[in-house]
Amino acid sequence: MVVLLGLLGLQALLVPLIGCADEPGPERTTGLGIASLSPAMTTIVRDLGAGDRLVGRTPWCRGVDDLPVVGALDGVDAEVLVGLRPGVVVHQPPAAGTDPVLLALRERVGFTIVGGRLDGSDDVIAAIDALSAAGIGDDSLVARHRTAMERVRSAAAESRDDARSVLVLFALDPFAAAGRETYLDEVVRAAGGRNVTTRPGWIELSVEEVVGLHPEVVLLVSSDVSAVDTLGAIPWTVPPAVVALDGAEALEPSTRMPDLVERVESLLAGAGM
């Protein structure tokens, strides 16, 4: 019983600490730093010319290996985030909503949270606008990337019935394809192709479905060379042309979408009979 009381006493001691920590220190200032909880947002920030303002990253962000990790799969590293004193935290909130820990930290430390779902050019343009509104990015770069993204958007909107049918595979075991309403679908359309899948989202396919879709071109979003052999072993009725789009930027819905469109365009052209 004594120990129990001791425990309760300890709690009683600690709980007021929480209480008194309520008001943030008056001299607390947040800097210009940007902490990123999303690899795609890191890429966008860097493309807008604000890469030098990045102060924190995820383990999967590219080109910023020297920065401390502030967030991984198990959530935000609160102390590192607070210690970085970022002015802005960029993220891609999950569908369930923004991490409550992040909101609680914002309440106490006072940074701005920027970000949203990134499912296509609209979302990337919205992210560029939000970052620019938060004072992030060089104006000319913002304008350039915005224009480029808008071109992707309008190119994707022009549907052409004679376009070559493309199956975008990003995994082979099992087969996983980019369906409608994904940024890769938009990239293919903007590059003058037609996505053979009709369902929305990221789709798992059986071999029969892959064969049955009769794609003219298989676009492999992978740098795995053995993937080509796997595709060769499939009993196609008419073997499609197989082209590979490698590089990690292909896996991020970001300001690299115009580049992706160009690369896919030339891949599709190169795959022409």
Binding site: L17, G83, V109
Partner: peptide
């Protein structure tokens, strides 16, 4: 966890400022 002079994450020892103290106490609880 704190930030060292180079801006990297590092382990720090000692009682921190109020906001971090709250985080730690909350984590401990």
């Amino acid at each position: 966890r704190g930030i060292d002079a180079d801006g990297g994450a590092t382990t720090v020892v000692g009682l921190p400022e109020a906001v971090l103290l709250e985080i730690r106490v909350s984590t401990i609880l």
